[in-house]
């Protein structure tokens, strides 16, 4: 299955938007508008966009790690609310309580970013268990990095997902590094898709820089999971352009390696294909980029900057449910 021209052009816009959004986050962090830890996505755009193009964003349930902004956006989260969250504002998607690593948009079925490496493996299996129990059509899609596969939760969760035939697609965005440790220095078997064979799970390794290849593989994977054949594991070979987080100097990577990967930029590759096919001009692309930059600056950043901070008087809100009658032994005792 391949994408139509209009879809490719929309994908190009979405991926470029993701790139510019993240780059603007970088600037805002340097300006100290964003605090805490910030893990950026440039270089890996084809992964979230390619896979979720094949799934149904806003319908299927998506969960991921702390590198989560772009997955949330692709699910339909309002970029203004995501940026306001990074700016720690009350208008943020989690009312300024979550931050970069914990973006949630439950209405859009984006079930969150989690900051314990490997934590979402069982949560995704649980979402899939609920979908199976409730006989629903949605599937669970779990995006995590290669380094998460060295956690016990990877093995424990894949075992249960296979054992109970759960409708979950595990996507491994293999960017070759767990913070600063290269995969061959941390992992005995470097090809991650091979590691799931012990659980009898269908798996494939795909070029994660080519959004069309990711999409094609994901269509098959999603079909497999949605048709009741159980979990699927998709390994996408990719690369992040920046360090693991803003506090990472990125000194551990060879410049030659970085140059090699930058030549296979997912956005430029798609752009050039559209230009070669005569469906886009360089001017079109420049206009698109300008339009995105303007939207980010004049609407998204403006909204985040002008929004109010949360009220400290509400510090203890959201710890427990409010007025839950069962705490007092039910409505009869209320």
């Amino acid at each position: 299955m391949s994408l139509k021209i209009d879809d490719k052009k929309r994908l190009l816009r979405e991926m470029l938007f993701s790139r510019r959004f993240e780059e603007r986050c970088y600037e805002a962090y340097v300006e100290r508008k964003i605090g805490g830890f910030l893990h950026l996505y440039p270089g890996q755009e084809a992964c979230a966009h390619g896979v979720l193009e094949a799934a149904r964003p806003g319908f299927d349930y998506v969960i991921t790690s702390y590198r989560d902004h772009v997955h949330a956006l692709k699910c339909g989260a309002d970029p203004k609310a995501v940026m306001a969250e990074l700016f720690a504002k009350e208008t943020g998607i989690c009312k300024g309580r979550g931050g970069s690593m914990h973006i949630f948009d439950v209405d859009k079925h984006f079930m969150g970013g989690y900051a314990l490496v490997g934590g979402p493996f069982p949560l995704a299996a649980g979402i899939a268990k609920a979908l199976q129990l409730q006989k629903r059509e949605e599937i669970a899609v779990c995006f995590l990095g290669d380094a998460a596969n060295n956690q016990g939760t990877f093995h424990e969760s894949l075992n249960m997902a296979a054992l109970w035939n759960l409708p979950v697609l595990y996507v491994c965005e293999n960017n070759l590094y767990g913070i600063g440790t290269r995969i061959d220095r941390s992992t005995a078997v470097v090809d991650q898709y091979k590691r799931v064979s012990g659980y009898g799970i269908a798996a494939e390794q795909i070029d994660g820089q080519d959004v069309e290849a990711v999409y094609a593989a994901a269509v098959k994977a999603v079909k497999h999971v949605r048709s009741g054949k159980g979990p699927f594991f998709l390994e996408l070979m990719t690369y992040r352009y920046r360090g693991h987080s803003m506090s990472d100097s990125n000194a551990y990577r060879e410049k030659a390696e970085e140059r090699r990967w930058s030549k296979r930029d997912p956005i430029i590759m798609l752009r050039d294909r559209l230009i070669e096919a005569g469906k886009l001009t360089r001017e079109d692309y420049k206009a698109l980029d300008d339009e995105i930059l303007e939207e980010i600056e004049n609407e998204i950043i403006k909204f985040a900057e002008e929004s109010p901070e949360p009220d400290v008087a509400e510090l203890e809100k959201y710890v427990f449910a409010e007025n839950d009658p069962w705490v007092n032994g039910g409505p009869a005792n209320g």
Partner: peptide, 16 residues
């Protein structure tokens, strides 16, 4: 697999 079956239960609870 205590951590993961507990996590699985938690994930299921997200959907009611």
């Amino acid at each position: 697999s205590e951590n993961s079956y507990t996590g699985l239960g938690i994930g299921a609870s997200f959907l009611g």
